[in-house]
Design a protein around this nucleic acid. Structure first.
Lengths: 160, 160
DNA sequence: TACAGTTGTTTGCGTACTCAATAGTACACG
DNA sequence: CGTGTACTATTGAGTACGCAAACAACTGTA
């Protein structure tokens, strides 16, 4: 038992996991702070706008958005609350299924995203390239991409 | 501007960052759930016990613990609240500096940690090795280790 | 048509943090 | 000695999430 504790430090999987954790926390803090200060968006605000901007017609079911952002539906409700209040996203309902409401990117939302994107991408690049060379960046992208994520799947319906 | 949005998907640094994010979230959820269900510990509870177990005499200043866990002092106060209530950690004061109180691992805490450790390490291994080969695990450990973390530094003083 | 089960969304509550403000202690310097 | 500055720990307020429950609307079955 106690052996596990001393082994743990040298167990490769544990090392990898620990460093993943620390890398995530430190980079997230830095990027989050810059995005918030520069554009008043949280990381999830930004990701939501980005995902919507890539969706057909800038519109996505809330459930789909939840999957993309790895949030629960309730998390999405609250996230979009803020974006709706800010006028960056609006609601659109679905003709054929009254249960669903779409999150629809507004023009203001798209502008906000475009304004934030260049800064944010620059921040990411700066942060990573400050410590890693290009090969290393490619390598972690490729390797981490093999870890499980969240499936997507969407049948759209005509908005009303 | 809009160019940034279409470029973003193919920018290596952004890809790496996005995947780091997703890898963190998905692995954390899985590991956190197992640890909580199996031993009633949160990830930070576990990490706190682990850091303490490695510290000299199983004792660490709260400030140092905060640095190790990348939490604020207030976060540590509340984290240790729970561990103290559970009898896994206790307070010890410092003879020479009355401002500091140590977090001191108890015997129960060490037992709890040892019990949890083997399961937790097994979970980490299983999760990573299910998707990655050993070389990849070593690679991300090494590369992510180059990203900035938090400095440590401790001058102990005799406990009272 | 009626009823049961499923799905999308919202809401109340709890949790785990952060930040800002506070109190107590340490220590250097006049 | 006081006094100012730095540091430790705690507390109150606020934030961002998840979970579970509630509700509405859809779907399948008969």
């Amino acid at each position: 038992m106690a052996q596990v504790l001393t082994e743990q430090a040298t167990e490769p999987a544990v090392r990898a996991w620990t460093r993943l954790l620390r890398a995530y926390v430190s980079t997230t803090r830095s990027l989050s702070a810059e995005l918030l200060e520069g554009h008043g968006l949280t990381l999830n605000d930004y990701e939501a706008l980005l995902v919507l901007s890539r969706a057909e017609e800038g519109r996505l079911k809330r459930v789909e958005l939840a999957r993309s952002l790895m949030l629960t539906p309730s998390g999405i409700t609250r996230l979009l609350e803020g974006l709706e209040d800010a006028g960056l996203v609006e609601r659109a309902s679905c003709k054929t299924d009254l249960r669903v409401t779409y999150a629809q990117l507004t023009d203001a939302g798209r502008e906000k995203l475009e304004a934030a994107a260049s800064d944010h991408v620059a921040s990411i690049r700066a942060l990573l390239e400050q410590h890693l060379v290009h090969d290393e960046i490619d390598a972690i992208a490729e390797i981490l991409g093999k870890l499980p994520a969240v499936a997507e799947g969407d049948e759209s319906c005509s908005p009303g």
